[in-house]
Structures are given as C-alpha cells and as structure tokens.
C-alpha cells in the first residue's frame, strides 16, 4: 500500500470511529474518496515525512498525516463554498468542512504523544489556519494590487498551510527549532499557489477565478502593460464577463505574447530555488533532503 493510500485509509478510519451521525459520516467518507482521486495528499505526506524525519520513538506518522490532511480537506471544501464551484447542498458541505477541521485537531489532541508537544502543535495549527483565513479573505476581496501584495497574500493563504503540515510533523516528533522548516515550507507554498493560479488560467472553464476578478501574477502583469489589452478592459469594468469569456483565447494569447506566463513561471521558480537553498541547510540525511525536494 502506498503512503497516499495509507493516509486515506487512516482518514476514513478516523471518520468511522469518531463521527456518529449517519448522513454526515457518509458525506465525509465520500468527500475523502473524492479528495483522494483529485489530490496527491501532499500536505499529509509532508507531515508524514517531517514526523518520520525527526522522530526518535513511536510510529504515529500515518495518524498525524491523516489529521493534517483532514484539516486541509476542510479548507478545500470551504473554498468551494466561497467560490461556489460545485455546490449541491450548502448545509451538509459546511458541516462536513467544520467536522473535518475539528476532527483533525481532535486526532492530534488524542494521539499518544507527550502533552507538551501536542499543545505546541495545536497552537501552531490554529495560528496557521488564522493566517490562511486572512490570506483567503484578501484574495476573495480582490484587494491585491501589486506583486508584493500578491506574494504577501499567497504566503498567508497557502504558505501557512504548507508550514502547518511540515512544522506539525516536526513539533510532534519533538523538534524544537522549526525556523528553517517554516521558511522553506512557506516558499514551497508560495510557489505552489503561483502554479495553481497559472493552472486556473489554463482551466478557465473549470475555475471561477477570472469571473471573480482574482488578480494572479499574470493578470497583474497585464494590468501594468503599456499596451491596451482585454485584461485591462475587463478589470477596469469596461467589459463584462460574458464579453471577456467569448474572447478568452485572444486574452490568453495576449498574455503569451507579452510574457505574462514567463513572469509567473519565473516568480514561481524563484521561490522553488529559495526553498531548495533552505533545504540544503538542514542538518539531516541527504536521502531525506532528496525526498523533500520531490515536493517542489
């Protein structure tokens, strides 16, 4: 069984054991199954790796990984509610998300690990989730105007979640100095979010980002252009979404011609390089460094 399958199995077992309401339980199990098909469970696997990396006793890797993945899945479901991407039944989706969020924290609280480590870990989870909510709200409110503001927003929105996954694994294993881990984790999160936002442009029809007027790096680049372009017209409200949508190929072509995709890819690569530099500084076995680098 692969690491991913082990984590998903553990997530389902946690739901089976701790959720009693039948409809909620069924919905949660379906959500986990669906999440497993769409995701590589990177957050859980990062928590797993970091626990394994610093642990000297006990084997709680899968349990901790499942807890982190449950919390991240809660965030994904809440994103869907906010973006209204695929909603059929608001109430059960919200209850499922809140259930996952609490379940993940309960799993950490009830793990057979020293209380001192668990307290630090749970406090860190709350801190990261709060940062992520701040970043999400800035994103949804379309408050981003510059590259620096975008990076700050994605560091909160996504960097904090990757930091949560890596640092929780380390803290529960007894690692006290988490500064370096936190740094590269945030860089990984920033790079991943830049790539995700690029992906939203490739998958215009599947994502609501453009309709919601979220400003990703390629869009900021087009808005700063000296030439007139469809992005400026749309974001300045000179054109409605329907008119923009029928010209999407032209809009994307303008991005390609001006270098907006190069720009986003370079920015992503910069954060990947920064993460690689930080990982190299870690005082751990080279084999672990190699595994860690596969997440970038």
């Amino acid at each position: 069984m692969s690491e991913k399958e082990k984590i998903a199995k553990q997530m389902k077992e946690i739901v089976e054991q701790l959720v009693s309401e039948p409809r909620l339980k069924a919905h949660m199990l379906v959500a986990i199954e669906s999440h497993m098909k769409e995701s590589d469970l990177l957050f859980g696997r990062l928590a797993y790796l970091h626990y394994d990396l610093f642990s000297t006793q006990g084997d709680h890797s899968t349990y901790i990984a499942a807890a982190i993945e449950l919390i991240v899945l809660a965030g994904d479901l809440l994103d869907d509610v906010v973006d209204q991407d695929r909603l059929k039944d608001d109430a059960i989706t919200v209850h499922t998300a809140i259930g996952f969020l609490l379940l993940g924290q309960q799993v950490i609280a009830h793990s057979h690990i020293a209380d001192e480590k668990k307290l630090k870990a749970l406090s860190y989870v709350t801190s990261c989730l709060l940062q992520s909510v701040h970043g999400q709200q800035t994103d949804v409110a379309c408050d981003v105007q510059t590259e620096a503001e975008y990076i700050k927003m994605v560091e909160k929105k996504s960097g904090s979640l990757v930091a949560m996954a890596c640092v929780i694994g380390a803290l529960l294993a007894g690692k006290e100095d988490i500064a370096a881990i936190e740094t590269y984790a945030r860089y990984i999160g920033i790079a991943a979010q830049i790539d995700n936002d690029l992906d939203a442009l490739y998958n215009w029809d599947k994502k609501a980002d453009i309709q919601a007027k979220k400003k990703s790096l390629p869009i900021l680049y087009m808005l700063e252009s000296k030439q007139n372009n469809l992005w400026k017209q749309y974001f300045n409200n000179d054109m409605d979404y329907d008119r923009m949508y029928v010209q999407k190929e032209k809009a994307l072509q303008q991005m390609g011609q001006e270098g907006a995709f190069y720009y986003a890819k370079v920015m992503s690569q910069i954060y990947k390089e920064k993460a690689l530099q930080e990982i190299e500084k870690l005082d751990v076995d080279d084999a672990y460094k190699s595994v860690l680098k596969t997440f970038i």
């Binding site: 490739y202 994307l252 390609g256 907006a260 995709f261 190069y262 890819k265 370079v266 690569q269």
Partner: peptide, 16 residues
C-alpha cells in the same frame, strides 16, 4: 530562475 524558465519554454504556452 530566469535562465531556467526561459530555456525550458521555447513557447510561453503551447496550449493555446
């Protein structure tokens, strides 16, 4: 980072 991205992409996005 600039060199890596520009040397890996002969076209910004072949997709469209």
């Amino acid at each position: 980072a600039v060199i890596k991205v520009f040397s890996e992409s002969t076209r910004p996005l072949g997709y469209w």
